[in-house]
């Protein structure tokens, strides 16, 4: 049976298309673009998405999660919470049933304690998105590099105190003015995010952390975070699509 999982994030909408247990393809598009393409007569119709038309993917069931669904619900879609979606996705991708999941997104950080493959408890960041993926994006933009380039620097990290996505910008501009090297600023940004994440991750201390979300693609943050937590960090094959994968698994499970 063909199922589709849709994770509407703050920055990107992620899709995961399954046939049975096989992931056929995944896709991501800008959240604003997603709504521009799909919103029609007060409804969100995902059949209008070019990627689904190109692949000629006709799903039997769709499950979605994420932002915006209270305002505009995706037509024909069942809805699950992000916490559940990410837990299902991480348990499936990692093959583990007892672990701590760190989902590091554009604005949100979720730390979920998973026991027996189910949510046991979770915490999220407070109302501030400091130290999130958006902070790293902003810093990369100021430095005129891509987030991927920023991600690999860990050498001689510059001390950056403001993890605020906005104030962090002026701090970086100041560092450049003082002649700091771009590589060290990048390392500093990665370190400051890890510093911000570690106390939250330690709430559910574990010897195994599964890390998902866009920030899981940042090797620098992972290196610093692994050092601070003193634990193994496992990044599944599709960290960015973890929530969407969880949704698709739920779609298959409910119908089964």
């Amino acid at each position: 049976m063909k199922t589709l999982g849709v994770d509407v994030g703050s920055r990107y909408v992620k899709l995961a298309a399954f046939d049975g247990e096989e992931l056929l393809f995944s896709a991501k598009l800008d959240t604003i673009k997603f709504y521009t393409l799909c919103r029609h007569a007060g409804k969100v119709d995902i059949s209008r998405l070019p990627v689904l038309m190109e692949k000629d993917f006709a799903y039997k069931r769709v499950v979605s999660t994420g932002y915006g669904r209270y305002n505009v619900r995706i037509e024909g879609s069942a809805v699950i919470s992000e916490i559940k979606a990410h837990t299902l996705g991480a348990a499936c991708q990692s093959g583990l049933s007892d672990f701590t999941l760190l989902d590091l997104g554009g604005q949100d950080t979720k730390v979920i304690r998973v026991r027996g493959g189910e949510v046991d408890d979770f915490v999220m960041n407070d109302k501030c998105a400091a130290g999130s993926g958006r902070y790293l994006e902003n810093i990369a933009t100021i430095l005129g590099i891509t987030p991927e380039e920023l991600a690999w620097h860990t050498d001689k990290p510059l001390s950056l105190s403001a993890t605020c996505a906005i104030f962090g910008e002026s701090e970086v501009v100041g560092a450049i003015a003082e002649g700091a090297e771009i590589a060290h600023i990048c390392a500093g940004a990665n370190l400051s995010v890890a510093q911000r994440l570690a106390p939250l991750a330690r709430r559910y201390g574990s010897d195994k952390y599964v890390v998902t979300g866009g920030v899981a693609l940042n090797g620098g943050v992972l290196k610093f975070l692994g050092e601070k937590l003193g634990a193994e960090l496992i990044v599944p094959r599709h960290p960015l699509f973890n929530g969407a994968i969880g949704c698709a698994i739920e779609a298959a499970a409910v119908t089964a």
Binding site: Y70, N71, E82, I83, K84, Q107, E118, F122, K127
Partner: peptide
């Protein structure tokens, strides 16, 4: 706000399960 609603929803879903 939307974020708080998502958290509450996740929390209630966890308690229900």
């Amino acid at each position: 706000d939307a974020r708080t609603r998502l958290r509450i929803e996740g929390f209630c879903e966890m308690l229900g399960s």
